[in-house]
Simulated scan of single mutants.
Amino acid sequence: MKPARLEEDLVLLFTAIASASSEDVLRRMGKAGYGDLRPSHGYVFQHLIPGPVKVRELAARLGITAQGASKAVTELEELGYVRRRVAEDDQRNRLVELTERGWAAVEAGRAARAAVNRRLRTLLGEEQAGALLAALQRIADRAGGMELLSSRRLRQPH
């Protein structure tokens, strides 16, 4: 099968847009004082926003080993974004939760994404932006991505 031209390959274009947008968000996060965060940290944060979780539960949600989740938590803990505390119902369990700095980073990330969204809408114009959003929502819904997104079950690409 002949490969599609780059400008006609939807998967590569989605990847390029996602990568460029992620870099833009990270650049804005850096300017806001959160330059030590990486995209992989966002996948951890999404599971802590609803409330504290056990490391094993976090690992299951992320689709990684408990050791991998513990490593990510340790890194974020050292950076001041999360903390571990003893679970009230079981002293043997430790819960991971966002710190004040973690919550501030979440808000900075939301502001950065909003700014990138505004830039893209300006680039396209409202009519084209609306049409693109409708098409992307349709694709995401049919591919199962909207369910993953709305239930906070997006996983980092491997």
Rank of each mutant, 00 (worst) to 15 (best):
S40P: 00
H41P: 01
G42P: 03
G42L: 01
G42Q: 05
Y43Q: 01
Y43R: 04
Y43P: 00
Y43S: 03
V44W: 01
F45R: 01
F45S: 06
F45P: 09
Q46F: 01
Q46E: 11
Q46N: 00
L48E: 08
L48V: 01
I49E: 08
P50K: 07
G51I: 03
P52L: 04
V53M: 09
V53K: 10
K54D: 12
K54W: 07
V55W: 04
V55T: 15
R56V: 02
R56Y: 04
E57N: 07
E57H: 12
A59I: 05
A59H: 01
A60L: 10
R61K: 13
R61M: 13
L62C: 08
G63L: 03
I64A: 05
I64C: 10
I64S: 00
I64W: 09
I64R: 10
T65A: 07
T65R: 08
A66V: 10
A66D: 15
Q67W: 14
Q67L: 14
G68Q: 15
G68H: 13
A69C: 11
S70C: 11
K71T: 11
A72S: 12
V73K: 05
V73E: 03
V73N: 00
E75Q: 14
L76C: 04
L76P: 00
L76T: 03
E78H: 11
E78Q: 10
E78K: 12
L79A: 15
L79E: 13
L79Q: 15
L79T: 07
G80Y: 10
Y81G: 09
Y81D: 09
V82M: 06
V82Y: 08
R83F: 07
R84N: 03
R84L: 04
V86W: 06
A87V: 07
D89K: 12
D90Q: 05
Q91R: 14
Q91H: 14
R92M: 13
R92F: 13
R92S: 15
R92Q: 15
N93V: 13
N93A: 14
R94W: 04
R94I: 00
V96P: 05
V96G: 06
L98C: 07
L98R: 07
L98P: 09
T99G: 14
T99I: 09
T99Y: 11
E100Y: 04
R101T: 11
R101P: 04
R101H: 10
R101Q: 12
G102W: 05
W103Y: 08
W103D: 03
A104G: 13
A104Q: 13
A105N: 12
A105Q: 09
A105T: 11
V106Y: 15
V106E: 14
E107N: 11
